[in-house]
Write a protein that binds this DNA or RNA. Sequence first.
DNA 1: GATATACTTGCATGATGACGCAAACAAACA
DNA 2: TGTTTGTTTGCGTCATCATGCAAGTATATC
Lengths: 124, 124
Amino acid sequence: MSPRQAAASPGPVDALLLPEFFKALSDPTRVRLVACMIKCGRACTVSEVADCCSVDFSVVSRHLAMLEQSGLLTAEKKGRSVHYAARHQHLSGMLRALADAIDACNPEDPSCCGGACGCGTDKT
Amino acid sequence: MSPRQAAASPGPVDALLLPEFFKALSDPTRVRLVACMIKCGRACTVSEVADCCSVDFSVVSRHLAMLEQSGLLTAEKKGRSVHYAARHQHLSGMLRALADAIDACNPEDPSCCGGACGCGTDKT
DNA sequence: GATATACTTGCATGATGACGCAAACAAACA
DNA sequence: TGTTTGTTTGCGTCATCATGCAAGTATATC
């Protein structure tokens, strides 16, 4: 199919390829924070996370809020501190769904074009 | 483990969570182009891809070059035109590897902390 | 060689965003 | 009530970047 046709036929790839999600991981500081939270494996306060980053405390606070807004973290207020935690399952689930959607569009993949993507069966 | 410890112990998550990669997908125009190429399923020229986007031709050219640099597309010069194609397998492979690395750090996942992540076995 | 086609690059501009500092806010504690 | 602790928000600044236009390069065709 032509690029024009491809752009005109929405599929799972379009639904999963969200710029907002990837923008959250496009900044080195945020990536560092997210990686820290993922590996940590438990909920952390802003202060704790700021401890593993050289930027200002307020910057960390803003980044974490943004990461929660983007769906990468959960936030829970407990007393005067806020507990942030990585959404492991949500993240890996999204990534795998996107990987599946991409594979479904791969003409070199024998399982391609079985209806999972918007590309039809015409591989020209 | 504490966020500080987590930050100090590199693992697969850090190796796969590359800001450069995600930055490539952080722009709506680029995402549109990438999605178009993925669904298209074949190599396309710059002119063809520009046809499915409302921005200037030069902008598309620059974006495609950047996407190739980031490893999302392949580029091949043929005569006076350049053929860009999505790296389906590479993309889905990277995404799945990251998903696996994230799951390996999930304390709620029974297969967590089997050595695949840098978090050790201490889940506190 | 001249012209057309396909693409890239230089440049100016406007928008977005990351950052640090200081002030504000909220909750616990004295 | 005043103070300390944990976090958010306002603001100014500097850097990055997406965009369009115009000019340049490269390859094919006449």
